[in-house]
Amino acid sequence: MGVPIQVTVNGKPYKAEVEPRQLLVHFLRDTLRMTGTHVGCDTSSCGACTIHMNGEAVKSCTILAVQADGGEIKTIEGMSPDGNGTLHPLQEGFKEEHGLQCGFCTPGMIMAADALLKENPNPSETEIRHALEGNFCRCTGYHNIVKSIQYAADKMRKEVTHG
């Protein structure tokens, strides 16, 4: 009754048999035990489960694991640019600008912001707020999340210029 799938998660290939109804977020959390991706609502409204599939930010509670077959997944655990603990500018931004309190929404926020900055390296405050429409934070009032993303955008643009 399991369906075989093959996915690449944070650069590593995985093969598994999954129940046809299993959600991608449960595959990541329960099968691969990557618990950085969170479940906050079950209705695709809170964004705590945001990951990247094939380069796009998606809500992993709205995708079946079988739909990810053959796909390329990136989660918060894969955000370190060298895979060795170095922080991505977004991760650094959230720390520097106090963009998190309880931390539960943070992985989803970072993944959503990462998708935004890929499309728009120099977003305005309004564009940042618009891009976060699908992600709830109940702790920060979003103020410092906006600043965290601005911090990362500035840093990434400088890296592009100087790199």
């Binding site: 959390r29 035990r33 990557m34 618990t35 950085g36 991706t37 969170h38 479940v39 989660t75 918060i76 655990e77 955000m79 370190s80 603990g85 922080l87 991760q91 959230f94 720390k95 520097e96 106090h98 998190l100 931390g103 539960f104 943070t106 992985p107 970072i110």
Partner: peptide
């Protein structure tokens, strides 16, 4: 002083340990 939070690293790297993460 606005000391940066020492607890942040685990949360921004997906290493926070919430109850549902425990198996």
């Amino acid at each position: 002083k606005p000391v940066k939070r020492v607890e942040d690293k685990r949360f921004i790297t997906g290493k926070g340990k919430y109850t549902d993460d425990i198996v």
